[in-house]
Nucleic acid binder design. Structure first.
Lengths: 195, 195
DNA sequence: CGTTTACTTGACACAGTGTAAAGTTGACAT
DNA sequence: ATGTCAACTTTACACTGTGTCAAGTAAACG
Protein backbone atom coordinates (compact mmCIF):
# COMPACT_ATOMS: atom_id res chain seq x y z
CA UNK A 1 0.00 0.00 0.00
CA UNK A 2 1.69 3.13 -1.17
CA UNK A 3 1.54 6.40 0.67
CA UNK A 4 -1.17 8.74 -0.36
CA UNK A 5 0.02 11.98 -1.91
CA UNK A 6 -0.70 13.65 1.35
CA UNK A 7 -0.63 10.91 3.89
CA UNK A 8 1.22 13.16 6.31
CA UNK A 9 -1.36 15.89 6.10
CA UNK A 10 -4.07 13.43 6.98
CA UNK A 11 -2.00 12.06 9.84
CA UNK A 12 -1.49 15.55 11.19
CA UNK A 13 -5.20 16.23 11.09
CA UNK A 14 -6.04 12.97 12.81
CA UNK A 15 -3.41 13.40 15.50
CA UNK A 16 -4.51 16.97 16.13
CA UNK A 17 -8.05 15.77 16.47
CA UNK A 18 -7.06 13.02 18.87
CA UNK A 19 -5.02 15.38 20.98
CA UNK A 20 -7.81 17.92 21.15
CA UNK A 21 -10.42 15.36 22.09
CA UNK A 22 -8.13 13.62 24.58
CA UNK A 23 -8.77 16.57 26.87
CA UNK A 24 -5.16 17.66 27.33
CA UNK A 25 -5.74 21.34 27.38
CA UNK A 26 -2.26 22.15 26.19
CA UNK A 27 -2.03 21.34 22.51
CA UNK A 28 1.01 23.15 21.21
CA UNK A 29 2.55 22.75 17.80
CA UNK A 30 5.34 20.81 19.51
CA UNK A 31 2.84 18.39 21.04
CA UNK A 32 1.18 17.72 17.73
CA UNK A 33 4.49 17.22 15.95
CA UNK A 34 5.63 14.78 18.60
CA UNK A 35 2.52 12.64 18.26
CA UNK A 36 2.60 12.71 14.47
CA UNK A 37 6.26 11.77 14.60
CA UNK A 38 7.63 14.67 12.60
CA UNK A 39 9.46 17.85 13.48
CA UNK A 40 7.60 20.92 14.58
CA UNK A 41 8.82 22.75 11.51
CA UNK A 42 7.36 20.11 9.22
CA UNK A 43 3.92 21.12 10.46
CA UNK A 44 4.47 24.50 8.89
CA UNK A 45 5.13 22.79 5.55
CA UNK A 46 1.49 21.70 5.63
CA UNK A 47 -0.27 24.47 7.54
CA UNK A 48 0.83 28.09 7.65
CA UNK A 49 -0.29 28.75 11.24
CA UNK A 50 -1.68 26.97 14.22
CA UNK A 51 -5.02 28.64 13.61
CA UNK A 52 -5.24 27.27 10.09
CA UNK A 53 -4.30 23.82 11.30
CA UNK A 54 -7.13 23.93 13.78
CA UNK A 55 -9.56 25.21 11.20
CA UNK A 56 -8.52 22.48 8.77
CA UNK A 57 -8.99 19.95 11.57
CA UNK A 58 -12.53 21.19 12.13
CA UNK A 59 -13.33 20.74 8.48
CA UNK A 60 -11.74 17.33 8.58
CA UNK A 61 -13.85 16.26 11.53
CA UNK A 62 -16.97 17.65 9.92
CA UNK A 63 -16.38 15.67 6.77
CA UNK A 64 -15.52 12.45 8.61
CA UNK A 65 -18.54 12.84 10.85
CA UNK A 66 -20.72 13.97 8.00
CA UNK A 67 -22.06 16.83 9.99
CA UNK A 68 -24.07 18.44 7.20
CA UNK A 69 -26.03 15.29 6.60
CA UNK A 70 -26.67 14.84 10.30
CA UNK A 71 -27.91 18.38 10.71
CA UNK A 72 -30.00 18.22 7.56
CA UNK A 73 -31.82 15.11 8.70
CA UNK A 74 -34.03 17.08 11.03
CA UNK A 75 -35.47 18.95 8.07
CA UNK A 76 -37.24 15.80 6.97
CA UNK A 77 -39.43 16.01 10.05
CA UNK A 78 -43.16 16.13 9.41
CA UNK A 79 -44.02 18.68 12.07
CA UNK A 80 -42.37 21.73 13.53
CA UNK A 81 -42.20 20.15 16.94
CA UNK A 82 -40.56 17.06 15.53
CA UNK A 83 -38.06 19.15 13.61
CA UNK A 84 -37.20 21.07 16.75
CA UNK A 85 -36.59 17.93 18.79
CA UNK A 86 -34.70 16.25 16.00
CA UNK A 87 -32.45 19.25 15.52
CA UNK A 88 -31.69 19.38 19.22
CA UNK A 89 -30.80 15.69 19.10
CA UNK A 90 -28.55 16.16 16.11
CA UNK A 91 -26.63 19.19 17.30
CA UNK A 92 -26.73 18.31 20.98
CA UNK A 93 -25.34 14.91 20.15
CA UNK A 94 -22.63 16.40 18.00
CA UNK A 95 -21.29 18.77 20.64
CA UNK A 96 -19.45 16.15 22.72
CA UNK A 97 -17.70 14.91 19.62
CA UNK A 98 -16.22 18.30 18.81
CA UNK A 99 -15.90 19.71 22.25
CA UNK A 100 -12.11 19.68 22.50
CA UNK A 101 -11.88 21.26 19.11
CA UNK A 102 -14.36 23.92 20.03
CA UNK A 103 -12.46 24.88 23.16
CA UNK A 104 -9.23 25.26 21.21
CA UNK A 105 -10.83 27.33 18.48
CA UNK A 106 -12.63 29.53 20.97
CA UNK A 107 -9.44 30.19 22.90
CA UNK A 108 -7.87 31.61 19.76
CA UNK A 109 -10.67 34.04 19.05
CA UNK A 110 -8.88 36.96 20.63
CA UNK A 111 -5.55 36.39 18.98
CA UNK A 112 -6.56 35.18 15.55
CA UNK A 113 -9.16 36.74 13.30
CA UNK A 114 -9.40 33.71 11.03
CA UNK A 115 -10.03 31.39 13.92
CA UNK A 116 -12.68 33.76 15.19
CA UNK A 117 -14.33 33.79 11.77
CA UNK A 118 -14.19 30.01 11.48
CA UNK A 119 -15.83 29.61 14.86
CA UNK A 120 -18.49 32.18 14.08
CA UNK A 121 -19.18 30.38 10.83
CA UNK A 122 -19.92 27.15 12.61
CA UNK A 123 -22.13 28.92 15.09
CA UNK A 124 -24.03 30.64 12.33
CA UNK A 125 -24.64 27.26 10.75
CA UNK A 126 -26.17 26.11 14.01
CA UNK A 127 -28.20 29.28 14.10
CA UNK A 128 -29.61 28.52 10.67
CA UNK A 129 -30.70 25.14 11.97
CA UNK A 130 -32.39 26.86 14.89
CA UNK A 131 -34.06 29.34 12.58
CA UNK A 132 -35.34 26.51 10.39
CA UNK A 133 -36.80 24.69 13.36
CA UNK A 134 -38.42 27.86 14.69
CA UNK A 135 -39.75 28.62 11.21
CA UNK A 136 -41.30 25.17 11.04
CA UNK A 137 -42.90 25.74 14.43
CA UNK A 138 -44.30 29.04 13.27
CA UNK A 139 -45.66 27.46 10.09
CA UNK A 140 -47.49 24.98 12.30
CA UNK A 141 -48.82 27.86 14.40
CA UNK A 142 -47.07 26.23 17.30
CA UNK A 143 -44.80 29.10 18.24
CA UNK A 144 -45.76 30.87 21.44
CA UNK A 145 -47.75 33.94 20.50
CA UNK A 146 -45.60 36.21 22.67
CA UNK A 147 -42.44 35.31 20.71
CA UNK A 148 -41.50 36.38 17.25
CA UNK A 149 -39.35 34.08 15.13
CA UNK A 150 -36.17 36.02 15.62
CA UNK A 151 -36.35 36.16 19.38
CA UNK A 152 -37.26 32.49 19.49
CA UNK A 153 -34.30 31.65 17.26
CA UNK A 154 -31.96 33.67 19.48
CA UNK A 155 -33.22 31.85 22.56
CA UNK A 156 -32.95 28.41 21.04
CA UNK A 157 -29.53 29.15 19.61
CA UNK A 158 -28.35 30.36 23.00
CA UNK A 159 -29.76 27.33 24.78
CA UNK A 160 -27.88 25.09 22.38
CA UNK A 161 -24.51 26.75 22.87
CA UNK A 162 -21.44 24.65 23.47
CA UNK A 163 -20.87 26.66 26.62
CA UNK A 164 -24.20 25.56 28.06
CA UNK A 165 -23.40 21.96 27.20
CA UNK A 166 -20.08 22.35 29.00
CA UNK A 167 -21.68 23.74 32.07
CA UNK A 168 -24.41 21.15 32.34
CA UNK A 169 -22.48 18.07 31.32
CA UNK A 170 -19.01 18.86 32.52
CA UNK A 171 -19.54 21.23 35.44
CA UNK A 172 -22.88 19.92 36.72
CA UNK A 173 -22.11 16.30 35.92
CA UNK A 174 -25.18 15.63 33.80
CA UNK A 175 -25.18 12.67 31.48
CA UNK A 176 -25.50 13.31 27.78
CA UNK A 177 -28.94 11.75 27.94
CA UNK A 178 -30.10 14.07 30.70
CA UNK A 179 -28.69 17.01 28.81
CA UNK A 180 -30.60 16.13 25.67
CA UNK A 181 -33.90 15.46 27.37
CA UNK A 182 -33.79 18.53 29.60
CA UNK A 183 -32.88 20.84 26.75
CA UNK A 184 -35.70 19.39 24.71
CA UNK A 185 -38.10 19.92 27.55
CA UNK A 186 -36.80 23.44 28.04
CA UNK A 187 -37.18 24.25 24.35
CA UNK A 188 -40.70 22.88 24.34
CA UNK A 189 -41.85 24.80 27.37
CA UNK A 190 -40.12 27.98 26.29
CA UNK A 191 -41.04 28.05 22.61
CA UNK A 192 -44.20 26.02 22.05
CA UNK A 193 -47.63 27.54 22.37
CA UNK A 194 -49.69 25.73 24.98
CA UNK A 195 -52.17 23.35 23.48
CA UNK B 1 -5.41 65.88 51.24
CA UNK B 2 -2.53 63.55 51.79
CA UNK B 3 -2.00 60.41 49.83
CA UNK B 4 -3.42 57.29 51.25
CA UNK B 5 -0.88 54.74 52.40
CA UNK B 6 -1.62 52.81 49.28
CA UNK B 7 -2.96 55.35 46.90
CA UNK B 8 -1.04 53.75 44.05
CA UNK B 9 -2.57 50.37 44.65
CA UNK B 10 -6.04 51.85 44.47
CA UNK B 11 -5.15 53.72 41.30
CA UNK B 12 -3.88 50.50 39.73
CA UNK B 13 -7.11 48.73 40.57
CA UNK B 14 -9.26 51.52 39.20
CA UNK B 15 -7.26 51.85 36.00
CA UNK B 16 -7.32 48.10 35.46
CA UNK B 17 -11.05 48.14 35.96
CA UNK B 18 -11.50 51.01 33.49
CA UNK B 19 -9.33 49.33 30.91
CA UNK B 20 -11.17 46.05 31.22
CA UNK B 21 -14.58 47.63 30.94
CA UNK B 22 -13.53 49.93 28.11
CA UNK B 23 -13.70 46.89 25.89
CA UNK B 24 -10.12 46.95 24.65
CA UNK B 25 -9.54 43.26 24.59
CA UNK B 26 -5.79 43.57 24.98
CA UNK B 27 -5.04 44.51 28.53
CA UNK B 28 -1.38 43.78 29.10
CA UNK B 29 0.65 44.75 32.10
CA UNK B 30 2.27 47.42 29.92
CA UNK B 31 -1.12 48.90 29.06
CA UNK B 32 -2.15 49.11 32.67
CA UNK B 33 1.14 50.65 33.72
CA UNK B 34 0.89 53.28 31.00
CA UNK B 35 -2.58 54.34 32.09
CA UNK B 36 -1.68 54.40 35.77
CA UNK B 37 1.40 56.41 34.91
CA UNK B 38 3.98 54.15 36.47
CA UNK B 39 6.48 51.67 35.09
CA UNK B 40 5.44 48.14 34.27
CA UNK B 41 7.79 46.86 36.94
CA UNK B 42 6.14 48.97 39.59
CA UNK B 43 2.98 46.92 39.06
CA UNK B 44 4.89 43.93 40.34
CA UNK B 45 5.68 45.82 43.52
CA UNK B 46 1.94 45.74 44.28
CA UNK B 47 0.77 42.52 42.66
CA UNK B 48 2.89 39.42 42.16
CA UNK B 49 1.28 38.35 38.89
CA UNK B 50 -1.21 39.54 36.33
CA UNK B 51 -3.67 36.92 37.58
CA UNK B 52 -3.54 38.26 41.12
CA UNK B 53 -3.97 41.79 39.88
CA UNK B 54 -7.11 40.74 38.03
CA UNK B 55 -8.43 38.86 41.02
CA UNK B 56 -7.78 41.84 43.28
CA UNK B 57 -9.59 44.01 40.75
CA UNK B 58 -12.63 41.74 40.89
CA UNK B 59 -12.73 42.01 44.66
CA UNK B 60 -12.32 45.75 44.36
CA UNK B 61 -15.23 46.02 41.94
CA UNK B 62 -17.37 43.80 44.12
CA UNK B 63 -16.76 45.94 47.15
CA UNK B 64 -17.32 49.21 45.29
CA UNK B 65 -20.50 47.89 43.72
CA UNK B 66 -21.59 46.24 46.91
CA UNK B 67 -22.37 43.02 45.14
CA UNK B 68 -23.18 40.97 48.21
CA UNK B 69 -25.83 43.38 49.33
CA UNK B 70 -27.34 43.53 45.86
CA UNK B 71 -27.50 39.77 45.59
CA UNK B 72 -28.83 39.36 49.10
CA UNK B 73 -31.71 41.76 48.47
CA UNK B 74 -33.66 39.14 46.61
CA UNK B 75 -33.80 37.01 49.74
CA UNK B 76 -36.18 39.50 51.29
CA UNK B 77 -38.81 38.52 48.73
CA UNK B 78 -42.08 37.30 50.12
CA UNK B 79 -42.67 34.50 47.62
CA UNK B 80 -40.52 32.05 45.73
CA UNK B 81 -41.55 33.51 42.41
CA UNK B 82 -40.69 37.00 43.57
CA UNK B 83 -37.33 35.84 44.86
CA UNK B 84 -36.57 34.18 41.53
CA UNK B 85 -37.40 37.30 39.52
CA UNK B 86 -35.59 39.55 41.91
CA UNK B 87 -32.48 37.40 41.80
CA UNK B 88 -32.52 37.39 38.02
CA UNK B 89 -32.79 41.18 38.09
CA UNK B 90 -29.92 41.49 40.53
CA UNK B 91 -27.48 39.18 38.85
CA UNK B 92 -28.58 39.86 35.29
CA UNK B 93 -28.17 43.55 35.95
CA UNK B 94 -24.74 43.04 37.44
CA UNK B 95 -23.34 41.10 34.48
CA UNK B 96 -22.86 44.10 32.16
CA UNK B 97 -20.95 45.90 34.88
CA UNK B 98 -18.39 43.16 35.24
CA UNK B 99 -18.36 41.81 31.75
CA UNK B 100 -14.91 43.00 30.72
CA UNK B 101 -13.50 41.68 33.94
CA UNK B 102 -15.18 38.35 33.45
CA UNK B 103 -13.78 37.93 29.95
CA UNK B 104 -10.26 38.62 31.17
CA UNK B 105 -10.52 36.26 34.10
CA UNK B 106 -12.05 33.53 31.97
CA UNK B 107 -9.30 33.82 29.39
CA UNK B 108 -6.74 33.05 32.07
CA UNK B 109 -8.46 29.89 33.26
CA UNK B 110 -6.23 27.62 31.22
CA UNK B 111 -2.96 29.24 32.17
CA UNK B 112 -3.56 30.16 35.78
CA UNK B 113 -5.01 27.95 38.48
CA UNK B 114 -5.66 30.81 40.85
CA UNK B 115 -7.58 32.75 38.23
CA UNK B 116 -9.60 29.66 37.48
CA UNK B 117 -10.39 29.22 41.16
CA UNK B 118 -11.34 32.87 41.55
CA UNK B 119 -13.71 32.65 38.60
CA UNK B 120 -15.24 29.41 39.84
CA UNK B 121 -15.75 31.01 43.22
CA UNK B 122 -17.78 33.80 41.74
CA UNK B 123 -19.83 31.37 39.73
CA UNK B 124 -20.49 29.23 42.77
CA UNK B 125 -21.76 32.32 44.56
CA UNK B 126 -24.22 32.84 41.74
CA UNK B 127 -25.15 29.20 41.97
CA UNK B 128 -25.99 29.60 45.64
CA UNK B 129 -28.29 32.44 44.71
CA UNK B 130 -29.96 30.19 42.15
CA UNK B 131 -30.28 27.40 44.68
CA UNK B 132 -31.85 29.77 47.18
CA UNK B 133 -34.41 30.97 44.66
CA UNK B 134 -35.21 27.41 43.59
CA UNK B 135 -35.48 26.39 47.22
CA UNK B 136 -37.94 29.20 47.84
CA UNK B 137 -39.97 28.06 44.85
CA UNK B 138 -40.00 24.53 46.16
CA UNK B 139 -41.09 25.73 49.59
CA UNK B 140 -44.01 27.46 47.90
CA UNK B 141 -44.81 24.24 46.03
CA UNK B 142 -44.32 26.23 42.90
CA UNK B 143 -41.50 24.16 41.39
CA UNK B 144 -42.52 22.08 38.40
CA UNK B 145 -43.24 18.58 39.65
CA UNK B 146 -40.99 17.00 37.00
CA UNK B 147 -37.94 18.89 38.28
CA UNK B 148 -36.00 18.29 41.43
CA UNK B 149 -34.28 21.20 43.13
CA UNK B 150 -30.83 20.30 41.91
CA UNK B 151 -31.74 20.00 38.27
CA UNK B 152 -33.73 23.21 38.48
CA UNK B 153 -30.77 24.98 40.07
CA UNK B 154 -28.45 23.70 37.34
CA UNK B 155 -30.81 24.95 34.67
CA UNK B 156 -31.29 28.37 36.21
CA UNK B 157 -27.59 28.74 36.85
CA UNK B 158 -26.83 27.85 33.25
CA UNK B 159 -29.45 30.23 31.92
CA UNK B 160 -27.88 33.02 33.95
CA UNK B 161 -24.34 32.46 32.72
CA UNK B 162 -22.27 35.38 31.56
CA UNK B 163 -21.78 33.53 28.28
CA UNK B 164 -25.51 33.52 27.61
CA UNK B 165 -25.70 37.21 28.40
CA UNK B 166 -22.88 37.80 25.95
CA UNK B 167 -24.57 35.88 23.22
CA UNK B 168 -27.96 37.52 23.61
CA UNK B 169 -26.89 41.07 24.31
CA UNK B 170 -23.67 41.34 22.37
CA UNK B 171 -24.07 38.81 19.55
CA UNK B 172 -27.83 38.99 19.04
CA UNK B 173 -28.05 42.69 19.81
CA UNK B 174 -30.66 42.47 22.52
CA UNK B 175 -31.09 45.37 24.89
CA UNK B 176 -30.40 44.77 28.56
CA UNK B 177 -34.13 45.22 29.16
CA UNK B 178 -35.07 42.55 26.63
CA UNK B 179 -32.46 40.25 28.10
CA UNK B 180 -33.84 40.61 31.60
CA UNK B 181 -37.48 40.20 30.64
CA UNK B 182 -36.90 37.23 28.34
CA UNK B 183 -34.74 35.41 30.85
CA UNK B 184 -37.36 35.98 33.49
CA UNK B 185 -40.05 34.64 31.20
CA UNK B 186 -37.83 31.69 30.33
CA UNK B 187 -37.18 30.91 33.98
CA UNK B 188 -40.86 31.14 34.79
CA UNK B 189 -42.00 28.86 32.00
CA UNK B 190 -39.18 26.39 32.58
CA UNK B 191 -39.26 26.18 36.37
CA UNK B 192 -42.67 27.14 37.64
CA UNK B 193 -45.48 24.66 38.00
CA UNK B 194 -48.51 25.65 35.98
CA UNK B 195 -51.20 27.19 38.08
C1' DC C 1 22.82 10.52 -12.64
C1' DG C 2 20.55 14.68 -11.43
C1' DT C 3 16.33 16.63 -9.77
C1' DT C 4 12.37 17.00 -6.96
C1' DT C 5 9.83 16.28 -2.79
C1' DA C 6 9.39 15.69 1.92
C1' DC C 7 11.46 16.09 5.61
C1' DT C 8 15.35 17.41 9.42
C1' DT C 9 18.27 20.41 12.24
C1' DG C 10 19.48 24.55 14.18
C1' DA C 11 19.22 29.37 14.70
C1' DC C 12 16.62 33.33 15.35
C1' DA C 13 12.79 37.19 15.74
C1' DC C 14 8.83 38.45 18.36
C1' DA C 15 5.36 39.13 22.09
C1' DG C 16 4.18 39.01 26.77
C1' DT C 17 5.11 37.62 31.57
C1' DG C 18 7.95 37.59 35.29
C1' DT C 19 12.73 38.26 37.77
C1' DA C 20 16.81 40.71 39.22
C1' DA C 21 19.83 44.46 40.35
C1' DA C 22 21.34 49.01 40.66
C1' DG C 23 20.01 53.84 40.68
C1' DT C 24 16.86 58.03 41.87
C1' DT C 25 13.94 60.81 44.72
C1' DG C 26 11.42 62.58 48.50
C1' DA C 27 9.89 62.22 53.25
C1' DC C 28 10.93 61.78 57.76
C1' DA C 29 13.80 61.15 62.14
C1' DT C 30 17.53 62.35 64.82
C1' DA D 1 22.57 68.05 57.48
C1' DT D 2 22.63 63.65 57.32
C1' DG D 3 21.19 59.00 57.09
C1' DT D 4 17.81 55.88 56.06
C1' DC D 5 13.70 53.94 54.25
C1' DA D 6 10.01 53.36 50.89
C1' DA D 7 8.35 53.87 46.45
C1' DC D 8 9.56 54.07 42.25
C1' DT D 9 12.69 53.97 37.77
C1' DT D 10 15.75 51.95 34.30
C1' DT D 11 17.98 48.37 32.15
C1' DA D 12 18.67 43.73 31.30
C1' DC D 13 17.50 39.12 30.99
C1' DA D 14 15.04 34.32 31.39
C1' DC D 15 11.17 31.77 29.74
C1' DT D 16 7.34 30.10 26.68
C1' DG D 17 5.22 29.48 22.41
C1' DT D 18 4.59 30.94 17.55
C1' DG D 19 6.38 31.64 13.28
C1' DT D 20 10.54 32.38 9.83
C1' DC D 21 14.74 31.19 7.51
C1' DA D 22 18.49 28.60 5.61
C1' DA D 23 21.20 24.64 4.92
C1' DG D 24 21.36 19.76 4.86
C1' DT D 25 19.65 14.76 4.04
C1' DA D 26 17.45 10.93 1.93
C1' DA D 27 14.37 8.46 -0.90
C1' DA D 28 11.80 8.40 -5.27
C1' DC D 29 11.63 9.08 -10.01
C1' DG D 30 12.66 9.98 -14.79
Amino acid sequence: MSRDLSDTRARILNCTWNLLESGDKKVRMTDIAKVVGISRQALYLHFPTRAELLIATTRHIDSVKNVDARMAESKAATSGREQLLSFISAWGGYIPEIHGMSVALRNMRDSDTEAAAAWDDRMQAVRRGCAAAVGALAADKMLRPDLNEEVATDLLWTALSVENWERLVRDCGWSQKDYASQIKRLAETALLAKE
